[in-house]
């Protein structure tokens, strides 16, 4: 009996490890990058109550004010066709305050036409991530969020740009 025990254990181990088992998803190497001119403006809209990035044509150094205008304007028809929405109220105007050059990791954005109470968390993230995509170079984007201060009707809110990019 004593002699059989290791054999049984070994057999159990073998049977347990037999065949090809399913796995959880696991990450695999560096991100894939396509071949292009290096432009593009990333905005963050909403799909199924979570932020979702889109890359529109445009210069990579498009000023932040222009980006915020595009964000406030909401998804294009094509994007809407793909189910993208925005959580920002129509008519809201966004303007940068105290914005450094790209590669800085913080900025302040003023919101006109809405109070902080009108901005739900997803809307705040849309702003933070769109600004973050302007500030933080893409190769740093993962894991290092920008810190964005959103000011509306005299109130302030601090949001980190933690979105799928």
């Amino acid at each position: 009996m004593t002699r059989r025990r290791p054999a049984v254990a070994l057999l159990g181990l073998l049977l347990a490890g037999c065949g090809i088992s399913g796995t959880e998803p696991f990450t695999y190497g560096e991100p894939l990058k396509g071949d292009d001119e290096g432009g593009g403006v990333q905005l963050h809209f909403v799909l199924r109550h979570a932020t979702h990035p889109v890359l529109r044509p445009g210069a990579a150094d498009l000023p932040l004010q222009d980006r915020l205008d595009l964000l406030a304007a909401g998804p294009t028809d094509t994007e809407r066709a793909a189910g993208l929405e925005t959580s920002l109220r129509p008519g809201v105007r966004l303007s940068p305050e105290d914005v450094g050059v790209p590669t800085a990791d913080h900025a302040t954005v003023r919101v006109d036409g809405a109070t902080l109470d009108d901005l739900d968390p997803v809307a705040s993230l849309q702003i933070a991530c769109t600004v973050g995509a302007f500030l933080i170079p893409a190769h740093q984007a993962l894991g290092i969020p920008a810190v964005i201060v959103i000011k509306a009707a005299g109130q302030e809110e601090v949001v980190k740009s933690t979105c799928p990019d």
Binding site: K33, D35, D36, G38, G40, H52, P53, V54, A138
Partner: peptide, 15 residues
């Protein structure tokens, strides 16, 4: 199965 977000050469995701 393999899945990935398609990124531009800048590394920005196209969604």
């Amino acid at each position: 199965f393999v899945g990935t977000a398609l990124r531009a050469s800048t590394g920005r995701s196209t969604g």
